[in-house]
Computed example of a mutant assay.
Amino acid sequence: MTTAVREAPHHRNLTCYTDYACRLPECRERFNDWQRNRLRAVAAGTWQPFIDATPVREHLLKLYAAGSTIQRVSDLTGIDWNTVRLYTQPAVKQGRGMIRQTTAEVQAKILAIPVEPVLPGRVDPTGTRRRIQALSAIGWPLKELGPHVGIKPDNVRRILIRGQKVYGTTAMATIDAYERLRNDRPRKHGVSKLGVARALRNSQQHRWAPPKYWDQHPGAIDDPHFESMYRVTRREIIAQDANWIMTTVGLDRAATAERLGVDKSYIDHAFRDHPEYLVEVAA
């Protein structure tokens, strides 16, 4: 039995060497330099490797409450976004708990970020829902998106179900996650083959549009008035229009067909394929 070796998400600090067993020459040298500096500091009596991370965690929570996101903190400090996340919440996988200790350097970088309002409290949920749906349409299970957005996995599904507004922080975090993940394969992030298949099947059943569809309609992903026509057939459109005409105007199928410019049999077939629009009136 062999154990799969996890690939380091980046090669910018010591974690690729210590946590992922990376042995690239530059990463090995980075670790050796750190080790030599540590030993010199220990000999000189100046070594202070870790300090309490509580001030960092409290400051991050204030930043999040003001509208900052995990990704924004990562961009401003150069600290990996997943490491930033672990200061306020434990990892969903790999058994990593919340970070309780940190270094003076990391603390200084994070505390240097001013607490300033970034977004309003709640915003329209349209763009947030559509981005989650688009990621699911390329194989991301909903429960796997929670850690990337910075919210509980169950809350991802609630966003899709509920029509109420979402927090501005959640909206911005979803945008960050969408841009990071839209070109990544879920399997590279540990999502199982079965999980990908289920996500694809679920999104197909709901006809959720993938990122490529929204790329063809710039700005539409956040527009609540834009109606997605992804995988909507002409026959379904006819069924919808016929339903509206017959229930609103009161025409029969023959007159409705004439108004829509199709044969009556076309409306019959449209209602057969899409019975949710069926109107039982005189033929």
Rank of each mutant, 00 (worst) to 15 (best):
A4V: 04
R6F: 01
E7R: 05
P9H: 14
R12H: 01
R12D: 08
L14G: 00
A21P: 05
A21T: 09
C27I: 03
D33K: 12
R36C: 12
L39E: 14
Q48C: 02
Q48T: 13
P49Q: 15
F50S: 03
T54D: 11
R57N: 12
H59D: 10
L60K: 07
L60P: 06
L63C: 14
Y64F: 15
A66M: 00
S68E: 10
S68G: 01
L76Q: 01
T77N: 09
G78N: 09
N82W: 04
L86Y: 00
T88V: 15
T88Y: 10
Q89P: 09
Q89R: 15
Q89W: 08
K93H: 00
R96P: 00
A108Y: 12
I110Q: 08
A112M: 03
L119M: 13
T126L: 13
I132A: 04
A134V: 09
A134Y: 08
L135R: 03
A137C: 13
L142I: 09
E144P: 02
P147W: 01
G150K: 11
Q164K: 13
Y167F: 11
A173I: 13
R185D: 07
R187V: 04
S192P: 04
R201P: 02
Q204V: 02
Q204C: 02
P211Y: 03
Y213Q: 04
D215A: 10
D222Y: 09
P224R: 05
H225K: 01
F226A: 01
R234Y: 07
A239P: 07
D241I: 05
N243M: 02
N243D: 10
T248H: 11
A255Y: 08
A255T: 12
E258R: 14
L260V: 06
K264L: 10
I267E: 05
D273I: 03
E276H: 15
E280V: 06
